[in-house]
Structures are given as C-alpha cells and as structure tokens.
Design a protein around this nucleic acid. Structure first.
Lengths: 182, 182
DNA sequence: CCCTCTCGTCTAAGATCCTAAACACCATGA
DNA sequence: TCATGGTGTTTAGGATCTTAGACGAGAGGG
C-alpha cells in the first residue's frame, strides 16, 4: 500500500486523545475494526473510513494529506525530554525540537538547598507551574511564599522572581511559560 | 455517503479519456469493478481505490479534494461562449470563467471588410487558428497570405499581425492562444 | 446481411471487510 | 485477593467487496 492508513489513523486518533472504543462509538463502528485498520490487517472501504473520520471529525482529503514524517509528536517519554539546566537545577523541556512552538513546558527538579538565579528581565510572557514533590520558596516581586505539592504559581515573566529550595529533599515542578524562551 | 466516489471516479476517468476497461487494465483490476464503483453499487476499499487511481495516476488526497460542484466544465453550448469583441470583430471565448486556465480558445467572426487592429506587442505566447468559413487576409511579420476554409495559421504572438476580411461574406475562425490574454 | 470490435452493465463465486463477542493485560480500589 | 473498568487484540461468521465471464447495445466493414 505504501499509504499506511493504519499509522495515519492511529496518529489521528491519538492526536484527538481518543481510545479505540471511544472513536468507534462516535463513528458508529466497532472497536475491533479500528484495531484491525490501525494494524493494517484490513484495508477499510472508503465508506467505513469516512464513518471513522466523521467521528473525529476529519475530511478524507485531509486524512490523506497528512504528512506523517513531520507530524507533531504528541507524546514524550521521560527520557525524551531535553535537559537544559544543570545537576542542581534541572530543566527538562517538552517538545524541544518542535518548530513553531507556542509555549514552553518544563519538568524542573531543584536539588535541596539550590536556587535559580534572578532571571534576566525584559521578558513579556507569563509563567506558571505546579509543585509535585518537595517544597519551594518562591519570591515574585516583593512577595514570598513556600509552596508544597499540589500548590501552584502564575506570574508575569517581567517581575523579578527566584526559586529556592529550602527543604531537605529535591523539589519537582511542572512549569510552563509563553512565549517560548528556549 | 455524500462523498459520491462514483461520480468522482467517472469524472476523473473521463477527464483522462479512458474507457472503464482501459483504466482497469492500467490499474490491475477488472472493468466490472470500475463499473460498480462508478454506480456507487459498492464502496471500494482504500487499497483498491488506490490501485485504480494509480492507473491514472492521481493521489488519494487529490481525488478527495476534487470539488465536483466547480468541476471544470468540459462542454459549452454556442450560447455559453463569452462575447469579448464587437459586432464587426466578434471574439467568443471558451471556458471564460475557468480559473487557472492555461490557454485561450476563441470563436472569431470577422465581418466583411472588417479588420483587427495591430495587437499590442510584448506578448510572449503563441497563437494559432483554423478558418472555418469565408476568407481572411493575414499578415504576420513581413508575410501576408489569404486563408480560406480549412486553412490555418500558427505564429508567435510577439510578431506584428493583423487580420483583414477582404471577401464579401463574414469570416469565421477558431483560434487559440497561450498564455491566456483574456 | 453477418462479423467483429468496443462500450458499459450484470451475475455467481471467491476474497476481503466488518461485527459481535471473547480474550489478555493493566490499573485502581474494596 | 478479588472485583471493576479501562486499554488493545483476536476470532468466527455474516456482510460486502472483487473477480471472471457473460450479456446487450452500438458502430463500422465486408
């Protein structure tokens, strides 16, 4: 075939965050058919492929136009994040190689006692994050607070800000900023 | 279905001037299948539709992108040609409204005694035509000749040229030029 | 007239698609 | 530990696609 309808369909389905059963329900077909198509075990009829794509929804022309080689990667394993920081303050970037990225998502790990330096000012974007492990002392403008797991922050990047791990264990944070600075 | 694969395929096949059997031979399928698909009696599998389109050839994406509602009109009644000239020198254009047209086909009618003015120079295309009725005196560069029914001409548009009807009846010519100037 | 060629259509039989249901696996939670 | 609910996969059988071949219609040519 060389078209690889299966890979295309799987790619489309995952990019919409659907399970085989959920897509099948929306499309009015069975989950087994989705599975068989994605494995290229069958070549679907145009009518059933159309039914499936209607569940997304996506037009047939768009489906066949998809360029899988440059299809945006939707999922990243832990080891696929790109390390930008140092052993003390680790910054691991999601979708680093993606062109035209609109935001930056980081998995940060700040060792006990470590701190980030004052960021250069002049950035106009915004920054936000959620602490997932440990505790972090965050200073934004004149305010300071210690955040623990489940707590979060959100501020304009131009404000002076500083992270400092005052606890005894490493602190992990998932943070996002826009526009992308990396 | 609302996609009408059958009409699309028939349209594509005819636009390539192929019979069902000829297309089937090129595609490696049977003529019966082409017939059934074109009648929408079956919805072909993607793999067999791809085989069929490979015989044209045309990509699946292009096939589904075809907009039948604006499908290029293939036939034009005499009253569907668009009049561009004047009563003395009538220029009736074929497929006037077609976007992206690559050439211009005209049905010209030049009244007895009438003549076309010297065309503006600087055109790089070519021009050709066949006289179907009456007689026309055509001057191209330094050469001149009178053409009657069945006779034809072909010259580069940048050469100075002039048509003059020296007979007593109107002269009709079918002419083409490229690139389109109208 | 027949003969031959090509056209698109139709039909029975074989190949493939599609469904319904079961399966194995992995989480989460009682 | 067992139950529950999620995932993707597999399989038998019915539905559909596809083929091979026959059919009828129309267009020349002898």
């Amino acid at each position: 075939m060389s078209i690889d309808v299966g890979a295309r369909l799987r790619s489309v389905r995952l990019s919409f965050g659907l399970s085989q059963r959920e897509l099948a329900r929306r499309a009015g077909v069975t989950n087994g058919l989705i599975s068989l198509i994605e494995q290229n075990r069958v070549s679907p009829s145009v009518s059933s492929l159309k039914k499936v794509l209607d569940g997304v929804p996506m037009a047939l022309a768009e489906f066949f136009t998809l360029d899988l080689s440059v299809a945006p990667q939707a999922f990243f394993g832990a080891d696929e994040l790109v390390e930008l920081g140092n052993p003390e303050v680790s910054l691991r970037l999601v979708a680093a190689q993606r062109a035209g990225r609109q935001l930056t998502l980081l998995h940060q790990r700040i060792a006990a006692g470590a701190a980030t330096g004052e960021d250069k000012p002049g950035q106009r974007g915004e920054e936000a994050g959620v602490v997932i492990r440990g505790r972090i002392e965050l200073t934004v403008g004149g305010a300071m607070r210690v955040l623990g797991p489940g707590e979060a922050y959100y501020f304009a990047s131009h404000l002076p800000h500083r992270f400092r791990n005052v606890g005894r264990e490493a602190c992990e944070i998932i943070s996002a900023c826009t526009p992308p600075t990396f």
